[in-house]
Design a protein around this nucleic acid. Sequence first.
DNA 1: TAGGAACCCATTGACGTCCATTATTTCCCA
DNA 2: TGGGAAATAATGGACGTCAATGGGTTCCTA
Lengths: 161, 161
Amino acid sequence: MDLFLSTFENRIDKKGRLSVPAPFRAVLERRRDPLYLFKSLTEPCLEGCGPERIGQIVDAIDSMDSLSSEVATLQTMLSSAQEMKVDGEGRIMLSADFIDFAELDDMALFAGIGRSFQIWLPVRYRERETNARSRAKSDGLPSLRLGGGSRRPPDDEDGRR
Amino acid sequence: MDLFLSTFENRIDKKGRLSVPAPFRAVLERRRDPLYLFKSLTEPCLEGCGPERIGQIVDAIDSMDSLSSEVATLQTMLSSAQEMKVDGEGRIMLSADFIDFAELDDMALFAGIGRSFQIWLPVRYRERETNARSRAKSDGLPSLRLGGGSRRPPDDEDGRR
DNA sequence: TAGGAACCCATTGACGTCCATTATTTCCCA
DNA sequence: TGGGAAATAATGGACGTCAATGGGTTCCTA
């Protein structure tokens, strides 16, 4: 079972190119999967995954009431999703939209979270990590729902413009 | 599985021509499918798809009570549908009716949503996107149990009501 | 015959590909 | 066990290709 684990920090060059960490690339290549990135719906970061997750979203949309707001939300995920072309050196090119959204500048932090990974502005990620840990101490541990979607109370700063 | 993903913003030139994004064209050409556009029932945008989707709508109508008002509504999708001719450079010409309906001026935004895509006035699309995101933050994500079973009730075949 | 649409060609700018360089780690052997 | 060599990874730059766009010309039709 190959998973995306650990964190890596890589540089974004002037052209917007970013090396995907070799261990993450290995996971995708072993499965011969292309890499998809999309903008997180809830946090200022990018999400990376393989095609199966994209397929799940598409199927979910087709099976739902097409007039519901939930469908509109899922469509937003798909519309922001890009199949990333990885160059010979294992790099991807981040669109201006992606860079703006995650507020990246010259460094990007890859955080492996199992079946997918996230890309963060390093400072923001660490900030979020310490917050999460201190919240765990004060509020107690969250229930560990493996395979379930995380539903978080609307507590933290709004990334709205 | 080739899908319509990501968003592209293209210019409508003085002659009314609009380039279909190369990735979208590739999906259609791979299947040797013509491109159909029709007016969205729910939003001020155009919907684009291949013939199989049109067929699904026709079948859905055939299986419904032909006197119901829903059928009349669905029929307007079909009557607004046009098979688009794509020129040698991959461009289409939008009818005045389409342009009026989506309130387009000189730019058009293509938003891929899996098996189909939409064409929007860019500003309006972004507005809709931020709405979807703030809704996701406050209401939580639509249930998408990735890696787990989907929550969809087993008897609600088509998500319509 | 005029207007618009289909076709053809030119331009340009972005991006994908290829190659060079540097840094870091691993491994082998002295 | 330490040093050096080789492999892997990350980074930077150069260049060719293709998509997007614009303009011109021909053809059809109203």
